[in-house]
Each structure stands twice: as structure tokens, then as C-alpha cells.
Design a protein around this nucleic acid. Structure first.
Lengths: 141, 141
DNA sequence: TATTGTTATACTCTATAACTATA
DNA sequence: TATAGTTATAGAGTATAACAATA
């Protein structure tokens, strides 16, 4: 129950919302959206995947993921290729342009966060790193 | 620059996005949206505020905050009252119903997160608490 | 029958622009 | 002239529902 929690921890959702809006606002016009960036990152880390796979992993509906993938495809950041044995499925793969963009430090949102994190003490950075692993475990359950 | 960061930390944005979607999906039909919940929480913690104040604090434009406040007002969770000395301003105040809802453990999103946090070790909970304070400081700059 | 993906449609959240009222 | 707020409109991101193709 919420009231059995440390009351400070109930601020977590509020803080996450603030931070997401702050990160989104740091974008410039060439940046990917958070969703697009999230999918691109996953494709780069894990290799080709189907739309259904991506939707499950990113916690959205397949229709929503279809829209996100279509936007990435229109920007030539991913390509589609038929599944070798299952004619229903389509494998989505990151392109060289997509990989380049992922590593591009001109990405204003990531550059902003990087600058903010650089101002933290090493202990604070370590805390954020540990918290990221904990939050990821919760999010991926 | 992003590439000078610990590479594990660049997952932070991705993890935040996943977690926000996960929390949003845990809502039931009676829940507040994340934005509404965020404003209500702030009004409860800090007392009455103008729309411009709330917009600055929550990192959105005044027009966007106007829409959020209108939704809360339609649900009788906040009320408007004229500013005593400045006829342009409107003070937004949480109602008793708003305070009750804020504490209602049936809020599915908060209940879900509370359950997840309860499964963590005390050390992990402490890490999340510290990280929340660090992230809030970054978000509020 | 179940699964993968698409198309159509709608809702939430946010933005920009243009306006009114007040300071 | 500057500030607080509202109205109108648009875009991103997500959802549900209905459909076609394939397994």
C-alpha cells in the first residue's frame, strides 16, 4: 500500500515525470523522439527484432510500435526485411545511418543529460547507476 | 559529451521511458493522469499556486497547465479563487476531495509501484531514495 | 483458431499563435 | 509595454477495434 512506503519514495513518480518533460524539452529539431530513440537503442544493442518483439519489450501495443517503426523507416534509420521462415513477421534492423545517429553527440537530449550528470560527484553518479539498474529491473518485469 | 559518460548511464533515459510507460499502463479507469497527479501532489505539498507558477514548476507551458487544471477542476479536485491583489491571476487550490484522492491507496499506479518497491531490499530502497533526490535536483534546475 | 501486422479512429499531453484583461 | 490567462489549432504518442495474411 502506498501509505506503508517511505513518504519520500512516493515522490518517485512525480520526479520521473518532471525529468521526462525536462529531457524532452532539451531536444532540438533534429532529435529523435524518446520512443524512437528507445527503439533504436534496443535494435543497436540486441540486433534485429519483429514489431511484436519490440512492442512487448518497450511496453506498448503492436499498433503503436508499428507507427514508431514507420517513422524510423521514413527517416532511413531502420529497414524491414521478411522473416526467413514465417511469412507474417517482419524483421526490423538498424541501418548504418541509425547507428551513426545513435552515437552522434549532437543529440541534444543526451548531451543535456550528460552535462547534468557530469556535474555530480562520483558517489552521486554511482548511486544513479545503481538506481538505473533497479528501475530497469522493475520496468522490465 | 555523451561518449565520455559511463556507457551504463546512457541507459537512464531509456529506463525512464520504459518505467513511465509501465506506470501509465498500471492505471485503472478511475486514476488521474500522470500530469494531473503531479499537479495535485504539488498543490497538496506547497499550498495554492497560480497557473503560471504551476507551469514553471512542472516544466510545461501555461496553456498546457491551463488544460490540466481545467480537467482537475471539472473533477472537483481543485478550485479557483481570485488573487487578492492582482486581478489577472487566479489561485488554484486543492479541495478536500483532491486531498482524499491523493491519499487513496486504490490509485492503481501508485499501488503498483509501491508493491514493486516493497519487493526490494532495504539497501535498494535506500538507493532509490537517494537517486530520487538527485534526479529531482537535476529536473528542477 | 491463433498470431503478425496494418488501417482507421480517438484520446491525452504538449506545443505555438493569437487574443483579452489587467498591471 | 509586460504579464496572466484563455481559446484555437496542431503534432506526437498512445490506445482500441476491425481487418487481412499467414501459421
Amino acid at each position: 500500500m502506498a501509505r506503508s512506503l517511505n513518504p519520500e519514495l512516493t515522490d518517485l513518480v512525480h520526479t520521473l515525470g518532471l525529468l521526462i518533460r525536462r529531457i524532452r524539452a532539451a531536444a532540438d529539431s533534429h532529435d529523435l523522439s524518446l520512443s524512437e530513440s528507445s527503439v533504436l537503442r534496443r535494435l543497436e544493442a540486441n540486433g534485429p527484432a519483429t514489431i511484436a518483439d519490440l512492442a512487448r519489450a518497450e511496453r506498448v501495443k503492436p499498433q503503436s510500435m508499428g507507427a514508431t517503426v514507420a517513422a524510423l523507416e521514413a527517416a532511413s534509420l531502420v529497414t524491414r526485411r521478411p522473416h526467413p521462415t514465417d511469412g507474417r513477421q517482419v524483421l526490423i534492423e538498424i541501418t548504418t545511418a541509425g547507428e551513426t545517429l545513435r552515437r552522434d553527440t549532437r543529440d541534444a537530449k543526451r548531451a543535456w543529460l550528460a552535462r547534468e550528470i557530469a556535474t555530480l560527484t562520483p558517489d552521486e553518479q554511482a548511486t544513479l547507476f545503481q538506481a538505473t539498474r533497479i528501475l530497469r529491473r522493475i520496468a522490465e518485469q
